[in-house]
Simulated assay, not measured.
Amino acid sequence: MKPYQHIAIVECGEPLLPIPEPLFSLVSPHPYTTVGAPYGEKSPFYLREGVLKHLIEAQALLQKEFPGWRIQVFDAYRPIAVQQYMVDHTFRDVAQSKGLSLGRLTESERESLLELVYEFWAVPSLNPATPPPHSTGGAIDVTLVDEFGQAVAMGSPIDELSPRSYPDHFATSIDFRDRSFHEHRQRLRSIMLTAGFQQHPNEWWHFCLGDQMWAWLTMQANPDAKVTARYGAVGEG
Rank of each mutant, 00 (worst) to 15 (best):
E14N: 01
T130P: 00
E49M: 03
F181C: 12
V82G: 05
E111T: 15
G138T: 00
D224F: 15
A221K: 09
L61G: 01
V87K: 07
M213N: 02
G103Y: 11
R179Y: 10
V117E: 10
F120R: 13
L52D: 03
H89C: 03
A151C: 10
A139D: 04
P128C: 03
D224V: 15
P132L: 09
G40Q: 03
M154R: 07
A233Y: 02
L113R: 14
R104T: 14
F120M: 08
A129E: 08
L47W: 04
V145D: 12
L209E: 01
A195G: 02
C208A: 09
A221E: 13
L16D: 03
H182T: 07
Y32L: 06
G232A: 05
I80E: 03
H184I: 04
R70L: 12
E183D: 15
P157A: 12
P20E: 07
M1A: 15
M154T: 12
D75C: 11
D159T: 12
A60M: 06
D88Y: 02
S125A: 10
G235V: 08
S135Q: 08
P131H: 02
G103V: 06
T130R: 09
Q5Y: 13
V145S: 09
Y39M: 03
S156Q: 10
G40I: 09
E160Q: 11
F176E: 15
G232Q: 02
Q83C: 13
F197T: 00
Q83R: 00
H169C: 04
R78M: 09
A129P: 00
P44L: 11
T143M: 13
F74A: 10
F66Q: 14
G50T: 00
Q5C: 05
I174H: 12
I19Y: 07
F74R: 09
L144H: 13
A37P: 05
A81G: 00
R78Y: 04
A151N: 08
A8T: 09
G149Y: 13
N127V: 04
V227M: 08
S108I: 15
G13T: 01
A81R: 12
V87P: 07
E11K: 03
Y118V: 14
D141Q: 08
P133D: 12
C12H: 01
E11C: 04
H89T: 05
L209A: 01
P132F: 07
D175P: 11
G138R: 04
V152F: 12
F120L: 11
Y231E: 04
W204P: 01
F197H: 04
E41Y: 13
S156W: 01
C208R: 06
T90D: 07
Q5G: 08
A221F: 05
I158S: 10
A229Q: 00
G103W: 12
A171I: 10
